[in-house]
Computed example of a mutant assay.
Amino acid sequence: MTDKVQGRIFGGEEVDSIIQFPFVVQVTTTLTFCSGVIISENYILTTAQCIYFNQDPIEVRAGSVVRGEGFLIPIAEAVYHPDNSFSTDYDIAYMRTETPLVFGEDMEPGVLVMTRDRTPILFNVTGWGKRGNEISNERYNVLRTLRLLTVSKRYCESEYRERSPVKENLGMTTFCGEAFDSEGGACDGDAGSPASVGYLIYGLFSFSLECKGPTVAPSVFTDLQDIEIREFITEGTGVEYENH
């Protein structure tokens, strides 16, 4: 982990095939567009903010890199963490599917992991977020992935303290990452996008101050290895973590 790196990725790279990230899904309600990650044949994770204000109807699509395409996954229920009050902490939710998913090369579960070092030095965040800070809210139509570097919570909070006192406290259940070879970062609409290395899932994107320009700050993720987040997921879904 490093205290500071230079530059950030904006836009990332277009994903050629969903086979590269078969656990990533689209999560749409009447108020939000987010991403999520399949963790078993019956459960999908996303962030609490994606369903907090509007749990019904929830449209989940899988198996395609194109926004609005792919096959629909009917959702029976959606549950967000009881300690989340639309805040930076406990930004996690799970959704139970109406019927078990049938896995193939275009739809497979990610793996929840426990590691000695908590978060990897480098990871990918993958989603369909905004094309920057434009007022038009135009989003990418094709799934994109960004390479990020884990940075310390101390550095992350100092960056937010300089730019936004409202976001000065990033909570106890988060970690931060930023890119290192160009400007930019994860954007609105990327909420719920997994932080992953291969099939290993370490977090879900929660928020950033901006995703490009002079006020850009590190991307903040819900830490899926946090003990309270982990208990919420395992007790609610029955999905166990793997040790790595």
Rank of each mutant, 00 (worst) to 15 (best):
109 P>S: 14
10 F>N: 01
73 I>W: 01
155 Y>N: 08
210 E>P: 01
5 V>P: 01
127 G>V: 05
80 Y>K: 03
74 P>N: 14
38 I>K: 00
151 V>Q: 01
1 M>A: 12
238 G>C: 05
163 R>E: 08
121 I>T: 15
36 G>D: 02
180 F>A: 06
28 T>K: 01
188 D>R: 06
67 R>D: 12
87 S>A: 13
50 C>I: 03
58 I>Y: 02
68 G>V: 12
227 I>R: 11
28 T>P: 00
232 F>A: 02
10 F>P: 00
235 E>K: 14
25 V>F: 05
17 S>K: 06
164 S>F: 14
41 E>L: 05
130 K>R: 10
48 A>V: 07
103 F>Q: 06
34 C>K: 01
49 Q>P: 04
9 I>S: 04
213 G>M: 09
189 G>S: 07
110 G>D: 06
137 N>L: 13
209 L>P: 01
61 R>H: 14
204 L>I: 10
38 I>G: 00
191 A>P: 00
181 D>V: 12
165 P>I: 14
198 G>W: 15
21 F>C: 03
201 I>G: 03
133 N>Q: 10
149 L>R: 02
51 I>F: 03
179 A>S: 12
32 T>C: 03
97 T>G: 13
125 V>N: 02
128 W>P: 00
204 L>T: 05
120 P>W: 12
170 L>N: 07
153 K>Q: 15
39 I>C: 01
69 E>M: 08
58 I>G: 00
213 G>P: 02
210 E>Y: 09
209 L>H: 12
11 G>N: 10
209 L>S: 09
96 R>A: 10
232 F>I: 04
81 H>Y: 10
216 V>Q: 04
119 T>D: 08
138 E>C: 09
130 K>L: 11
123 F>W: 10
174 T>Q: 06
219 S>C: 05
80 Y>M: 02
157 E>C: 08
220 V>G: 02
24 V>M: 05
124 N>S: 13
103 F>Y: 12
99 T>N: 15
222 T>C: 10
115 T>P: 02
215 T>H: 14
141 N>E: 13
139 R>S: 06
236 G>W: 00
233 I>G: 00
163 R>K: 15
211 C>F: 05
52 Y>W: 08
95 M>F: 06
157 E>K: 04
128 W>Y: 12
128 W>H: 07
12 G>Q: 01
230 R>A: 07
67 R>L: 14
104 G>A: 11
188 D>V: 12
30 T>R: 04
169 N>V: 15
26 Q>A: 11
93 A>C: 07
219 S>F: 01
221 F>R: 05
176 C>Y: 07
18 I>E: 01
46 T>L: 08
37 V>T: 13
184 G>T: 09
118 R>H: 11
199 Y>N: 10
180 F>I: 05
158 S>M: 11
109 P>M: 12
153 K>M: 14
168 E>W: 13
190 D>C: 04
208 S>Y: 02
214 P>Q: 08
230 R>T: 13
26 Q>G: 07
37 V>P: 00
32 T>N: 03
181 D>Q: 13
7 G>F: 12
108 E>M: 06
158 S>L: 09
